[in-house]
Design a protein around this nucleic acid. Structure first.
Length: 570
DNA sequence: GCCGTTTTCGGCCCGACTGTTTTCAGTCG
């Protein structure tokens, strides 16, 4: 996709314009950059299908930016950008990623010291040259050096499901501070984004200063970036940053909205308030000095003329229009799942036996699981052949008697071969309750070949579910190239279920594909891909993912009891 | 440069904290 590079350039233009003291253009470019980054379709395709008019349909992209995008697609250059870049030839992304360094500082650093890169900035700071620049002091120099040290460790964003246990522990600790009335996650943590930049907490109390003081004494705090009467920003010894903000319970609703974001969502609803002649800030919704609403989120949204919006879908896109019309779907709830349809055991690459997995799932309150060990062509996992599968089925029957109170379904994670055929014969597959099929090899086929390959597997009447349909692993492996529209159409036609793999670094399907599937009436399943008894807890993140994709209870098959669920399969 | 339930011009989210300076611009979320 060209989107990432294009967004980067638009963002750089924004910073360059800021340096020049332009007032509103930077926001315009920043907004356009954000939109382009969020697009699910490649800008090249959008342009190919609908020319420049289609580009102008991207939120925040008007005539001017659309022309520049067109120029970029045609020539790989944007003249205005090149011109700006020539005047100030600095590595903007490198420098602005340093905490506390923004456009104005970058400009001064370049003009006064000729600094273009982060390495040069570090060298100058170490040599004590920064404090000679007007507006810079010793503190600034120290902070820049500290931030560069931190960046060198290359800490990017954390994966939601992996960071959540730590976040939950810290939230519990915060709640135990006596002056705390209540406390919640905020930011991307509360929105349950698939990756998290830092841990945001919002605390409700009438004694903010004391809470900040006590929080700053927590042993896990390694460094304090800033602290005030109401807020603090720190780094934890686990090398992730945490933000805490304390607000009076009187402002709980408005503060939660403000601190949950997203930024785009906040801008949109604050603009909406402003249109009515009101002001929306952390402390409430105001008409002049008159407080209109502040206590609960519901109250604030209602006053603005809309229904409450679940945090998971607060993107600042179409959720606001839907909420204004009272047309938000009722998203699947965190208690709605009754079973897990992808579970591996020690028959292949799982850590625990069928019995141990069943017992663990039962303990968590699940009504059923489906055992889906790998099949033979995935040799590294010791995958089952036909004979092995039959043996495992017999073993499941045996375990079922030993572990009552949870239904153990018989399944397999069958390998889709390069040509779309399966590595287990149909006769054996018909004996299973559920057949999941998945791609584990040949990730580099062309989009056309990969799409046809998976559709061919869907057309097998035994294939019930496509597991982790895009094969991506967050921060490790990109999704293989596939035409998702075509896959979803085929899924609809063949009544194949698409999985939301809840394993935290998979989270596959991702939210925009889930939303597309929901719109097209394709059924989904949410499974953990558990390889250990500890993995069932990941269902929570699969549900979060489904909620971000606007999925309802009805869209997800394993919200039903197992008998009813099986009826939905081919 | 973008945008419209106060549409084709006039406004663009809002507030806390920091560092350096002495009243506020810059940065961040």
């Amino acid at each position: 996709m060209v989107n990432h590079n294009l967004a980067k350039i638009l963002r750089e233009i924004s910073v360059l314009l800021e340096m020049k003291g332009e007032d509103f253009k930077p926001q315009a470019y920043e907004k356009a950059a954000h939109s382009v980054e969020m697009l699910e379709r490649d800008v090249r395709e959008i342009y190919k299908d609908g020319s420049i008019k289609a580009l102008e349909d991207i939120p925040g992209v008007g005539k001017g930016i659309a022309e520049r995008i067109e120029e970029y697609l045609k020539t790989h250059h944007i003249k205005d950008y090149d011109k700006l870049k020539k005047q100030i030839p600095v590595k903007i992304d490198e420098l602005s990623s340093v905490e506390g360094v923004g456009s104005k500082m970058i400009l001064r650093l370049y003009k006064e010291l000729g600094i273009k890169t982060r390495a040069q900035l570090e060298k100058a700071a170490k040599a004590g040259k920064l404090k000679n620049i007007e507006g810079f002091g010793k503190k600034t120099e120290e902070n820049i050096l500290r931030s560069i040290e931190f960046l060198k460790k290359e800490h990017g964003r954390s994966i939601l499901g992996f960071i959540m246990p730590q976040a939950k522990d810290l939230l519990e600790k915060i709640k135990k501070i006596p002056e705390v009335k209540s406390a919640e996650f905020a930011g991307s943590l509360r929105r349950r984004r698939e990756t998290i930049g830092d841990l945001d907490f919002i605390v409700f109390s009438d004694k903010p200063a004391e809470i900040i003081k006590k929080f700053l004494n927590f042993p896990e705090i390694e460094h304090i970036y800033s602290k005030g009467e109401q807020k603090a920003l720190v780094r934890l010894n686990s090398d992730i940053d945490a933000d805490i903000s304390v607000v009076s319970p009187k402002s709980l609703g408005s503060a939660l909205i403000a601190w949950t974001g997203s930024k785009q969502h906040n801008i949109a609803i604050r603009t909406l308030a402003e249109k009515k002649g009101w002001l929306l800030n952390d402390y409430g919704l105001w008409n002049g000095k008159k407080l209109l609403a502040s206590k609960t989120e519901e109250e604030v949204y209602k006053k603005l003329g809309m229904e409450w919006i679940p945090p998971e879908i607060r993107n600042g896109t179409d959720e606001i229009n839907a909420a204004l019309k009272n047309k938000l779907p009722e998203l699947i709830g965190y208690d709605d799942l009754k079973g897990d349809l992808q579970v591996q055991t020690d028959w292949t690459d799982g850590d625990h036996s069928i019995k141990e997995m069943a017992e663990a799932a039962k303990k968590l309150g699940l009504e059923y699981i489906c055992i889906t060990d790998h099949t033979k062509s995935l040799a590294m996992t010791g995958g089952n052949d036909e004979k092995g599968l039959l043996k495992e089925m017999a073993e499941i029957d045996k375990v079922q008697k030993q572990v009552p109170g949870i239904k153990i379904l018989k399944g397999a994670e069958v390998n889709i071969m390069k040509d779309g055929s399966l590595d287990i014969d149909d006769e054996t597959l018909t004996k299973l309750d559920i057949v999941g099929a998945a791609v584990h090899s040949h990730f580099n086929l062309s989009e056309k070949e990969q799409t046809e390959r998976i559709i061919k597997a869907m057309e097998n009447p035994n294939v019930d579910i496509i597991f982790h349909p895009t094969g991506r692993i967050i921060q490790r492996r990109d999704a293989y190239k596939v035409d998702m529209d075509a896959l979803l159409k085929a899924a609809k036609r063949t009544k194949t279920v698409m999985e939301i793999d809840a394993y935290p670094d998979r989270s596959d399907l991702k939210d925009e594909y889930i939303r597309k599937a929901v719109e097209m009436g394709v059924k989904l399943s949410i499974d953990t891909d558990a390889h250990s008894i500890h993995h069932f807890q990941y269902l929570e993140y699969g549900i979060a993912q489904a909620r971000r994709g606007w999925a309802t209870r009805d869209d997800v098959i394993n919200t039903r009891g197992w008998k009813e669920m099986l009826k939905l399969l081919k």
